[in-house]
Simulated assay, not measured.
Amino acid sequence: MTGYVQMHFSRAERENIFGGEWNGWPANEWSEYNDCLEITEDSEKNATLNEIIKPRFKVDNVDGILDDDTYIRFESIIEFPYFLLHALRVFVDFYDVSLEKDLGELLDDKKLIADFENVIKYGTIDDEPIKDNKENFAKIFIIHLLQTRYLFDMFIIKREFTGEDKDGEWSLKELHTSGQASKKKAYYSNTLLKCDYERKEAYAPRNKECLMIQSALRVSYTSPKVMHWITELVLWLFKNDEVPQLTNEAEDIAALATKENFLDGKDYKLGVTTPHIVFNFLDYLLWKNNKNKYSDFEFEFRNSVEHWYPQNPSDGSFDSWDDKDTFGNLCIISRSVNSKFSNLSPESKMKSYGNMVKKGSLKLRIMGCIIQNSSNEVWIDSMKMK
């Protein structure tokens, strides 16, 4: 799933659904869509629903690639089946749908059809079984899907590709238009998380903060099956008009995960099983507390937990340490860096790979600074004091 939903409609459909500026909230009533969302027979490219649902059905143009094979600018952090799973869970909560059996714990694309069947066959809205009026459910859900995609596009991070940067960067932007009539074109600027009559210097930092905490969540939960934070944020957006508080909501999600999966257990010696969200949330707090100092920092897929003072010292060249699994001695790094660090002492890691350390996670950078002015023995002593 790529791009912005507005850009996948014809110009006329865009204006009917999203207004003249292409960025208005989709209407809540089905009657408002009488002049759009229609299937016509005047194009050879149209396909019937029976054709579309066949496993071998393919479209001529891959989603996200333009006619000239140029990749589009934005890439979603989830694929469409997972978006449907998020949308369904938001629907169940927002419309207070009663179910005989709850939807699965995981966002499992293999159970997509089963989840929808569960809602349609056994769900009730205001004591009315959905199965008794499937047509009404279909209309409500189509509008809900459109509105969910609208919120997802505007308020959930993506990867943005510009110039020759093949890896892209985290982006939180919204669509705007310039020009008139047939010359109207789309452009993108940072999503505004502002209160009425608020000055730019007050609201501008929120975009970066929201982008950073969401990217911290994204790199912590690498499997789309466990990205429940997306469901929570989109549901919050449906229920709340105070979009400037979106950053706070995302912070609360990260803080609660850290509390439940780490702090509540009061076991700070989990070693490599320490949840990644703990490291990334700490890095976010360190960044937020000193943005100027860490202006070059961004969240990356650092998926390996490393012992700074190693588990098994190289060739017995220095003493082992029983409390090596303590959180203070751990850092999160990429697997490629982990292979280089190997079983070297903290001093040797900093001397040999100092440049990698200085570009790594903020916790790792701080650990590097400490060992730069001390020794392996001092490092152990400092951990004993924690």
Rank of each mutant, 00 (worst) to 15 (best):
Q6F: 07
M7Y: 06
H8D: 11
A12Y: 15
E15Q: 14
E21L: 11
E21P: 01
E21D: 14
W25S: 04
P26D: 09
N28M: 10
Y33N: 08
L37R: 07
I39W: 11
T40F: 10
S43Y: 08
T48Q: 11
L49V: 05
E51C: 05
K54C: 10
K58E: 12
G64R: 07
I65H: 08
L66M: 13
D69L: 12
I72K: 10
R73G: 01
I78W: 02
E79Q: 13
F80I: 04
F83S: 03
R89V: 05
V92T: 08
S98C: 07
L103P: 08
L106Q: 12
D108L: 09
N118S: 13
Y122E: 12
Y122Q: 12
G123E: 09
D126T: 11
N133G: 10
K139H: 13
I142M: 15
Q147P: 06
Q147C: 03
L151Y: 13
F152P: 01
E160C: 13
D167T: 05
W170G: 12
H176V: 03
G179P: 02
A186I: 03
S189W: 09
Y197N: 15
Y197E: 14
R199H: 11
E201W: 06
Y203H: 11
A204H: 12
A204F: 13
P205R: 03
E209C: 04
T222S: 12
V226W: 06
M227I: 03
I230Y: 05
F238S: 01
F238R: 10
P244Y: 08
T247F: 14
A254K: 03
L256K: 13
A257E: 15
K259G: 03
E260L: 12
L263Q: 09
D264S: 08
Y268L: 13
K269G: 10
K269W: 05
G271Q: 09
T273G: 03
T274H: 10
P275E: 04
F281Q: 05
L282I: 07
L282Y: 11
L286P: 00
W287A: 01
N290L: 09
N292E: 11
K293E: 12
Y294D: 04
D296H: 12
E298A: 06
E300R: 13
R302Q: 06
R302N: 06
V305P: 01
Y309V: 02
P313K: 08
D315F: 10
W321T: 03
K324Y: 15
K324S: 09
K324F: 14
T326N: 14
G328H: 04
S336Y: 02
V337Q: 15
N338Q: 04
N343M: 07
N343L: 03
S345I: 03
E347Y: 01
E347H: 01
K349W: 07
M350K: 14
S352H: 11
K358S: 15
K358R: 15
L362S: 06
L364F: 12
R365S: 00
G368N: 03
I370E: 05
N373S: 13
N376K: 02
E377W: 00
I380F: 00
S382K: 14
M385T: 13
